[in-house]
Simulated assay, not measured.
Amino acid sequence: MKRIVLFLATNFAILIVLSITLRILGVESILDDQGVNLDLTALLIFAAVFGFGGSFISLAISKWMAKKTMKVHVIDKPRNATEQWLLETVTRQAREAGIGMPEVGIYDSPDPNAFATGMSKNNALVAVSTGLMQNMGQGEVEAVLGHEVGHVANGDMVTLALIQGVVNTFVIFLSRVIGHFVDRVIFKNESGHGPAFWITAIVAEIVLAILASIIVFWFSRQREFRADEAGARFASREKMIGALESLARASGRPVDMPDQMAAFGIRGGMAQGLKKLFMSHPPIEQRIAALRANG
């Protein structure tokens, strides 16, 4: 629920920033054709600029943000045999995947987890927690690394940013169209935008953001199945299943990652009922079943 609230707050902030910026730049007069009709072409262009702009700025800084928020130690020169093995394993998997060598890091957390992020296939970061290294055998860790390399090779971060950009664009666009309709048709405001426009646009933004986020979370769940297949390919199916079974034993623990990073981790949270629609990860038992079915 906390993640949903954060998502809504972010989209609400986008609308407010968009509205203030358009007013400061005098763009409101461009979006209104002669102060009566909404210029849909101009509105769509500006909604796309803000929708995709925010999404890709977030992607561009994702690796930097991950390093700072998770306090990731990037392995430049291995300090021990474990770090040497991590580098060698990711190097091999990246070569097999046909991508550039990602940065490899470790962050201090008892939560057994790992994540991958970055702007492109050749500019990524793969990081594992100390809890994962302590709770899994080497074969299982190898599968987890393969899972994360699979995310990078599949271009999941870029694709997710594109989907989020499209979603943001149409949420911004449709919320203003609805606001314009209510302002003109129901409240009979004949020029400019009255309070009804802004109130309706904000309410529509929230409702549409909730509905649209279901699409984003659905894609996020599908990418986990594909990454699990990559882990099975780069390590073995048995090792990937073993890694997921280890994660299942930790499923009662809260995910020790900031909300903006949680969707990138290999271990998601748990949810019941309608909350399942807003999960970034499928239930682990479904992921294990999918691997066994495709074996």
Rank of each mutant, 00 (worst) to 15 (best):
V144R: 03
T200A: 11
A81D: 12
S29E: 12
P283H: 14
W198M: 10
A196T: 14
L86H: 10
R176L: 12
N37G: 10
M70E: 13
T82H: 09
Q93W: 06
G295T: 14
G137N: 00
A227S: 14
K67M: 15
P112F: 03
L31W: 13
I241R: 00
D33S: 13
F52Y: 07
I20V: 15
G155C: 00
L244I: 00
E190A: 14
F187T: 15
K239G: 00
T41E: 12
V185E: 15
K121D: 05
A235F: 01
G242C: 00
M270D: 06
L132H: 00
A248H: 11
D256V: 01
S251I: 07
V255N: 00
V207F: 13
E28L: 13
A290D: 09
R184G: 13
A290C: 06
E88D: 15
N154V: 02
L6P: 06
N113G: 03
N189R: 10
A97T: 08
A204Q: 08
F170N: 04
K275T: 11
F170V: 06
G295L: 11
S236F: 05
E190S: 14
A262C: 09
G51W: 05
T159H: 08
F187K: 08
K68Q: 06
N123P: 06
A232F: 06
Q222Y: 05
L87R: 13
